[in-house]
Design a protein around this nucleic acid. Structure first.
Length: 110
DNA sequence: CTTCCGGCCCGCG
DNA sequence: ACGCGGGCCGGAA
């Protein structure tokens, strides 16, 4: 029940979410623990390349944080980006996953 | 490094 | 139903 799949079902069933929002949330759910991805990556994977900023809007309202790991989403230049729960929280969560950060910079996959 | 502007979906008036 | 402004951005200047 606290697993990833159950959140997926809740999200899919919630009529309040648009197709776009669902795609975004699903994409974020697929980010492995201990790794980060850029907003642009989420946008792309959601099928809306170029909608990175709109992705931010969705994440900021993310009702399932931190179960939907929006804290693993950072800016494409590696800088930390934002977090509606407060950046301190975001840093702490990432640190718990083993990500050290130097001056709020994170290393992206590719 | 900072600033500026384009581009995208959503929420509210 | 329509329009306008905004934001956890991105990339160029």
């Amino acid at each position: 029940m606290g697993n990833k799949n159950s959140y997926k079902e809740q999200i899919a069933a919630n009529p309040r979410f648009t197709k776009f929002m669902k795609k975004v949330l699903f994409a974020v759910l697929d980010i492995p623990e201990g790794e980060v991805r850029p907003y642009a990556w989420v946008a792309q994977k959601s099928g809306y390349p170029g909608a990175a900023r709109a992705v931010g809007q969705v994440l900021k309202k993310n009702p399932y944080a931190p179960h939907v790991p929006c804290h693993r989403v950072v800016r494409s230049d590696g800088s930390i980006g934002g977090y509606s729960g407060g950046l301190e929280k975001k840093r702490a969560l990432l640190k718990k996953e083993g990500l050290e950060n130097e001056a709020d910079r994170y290393t992206l996959p590719s």
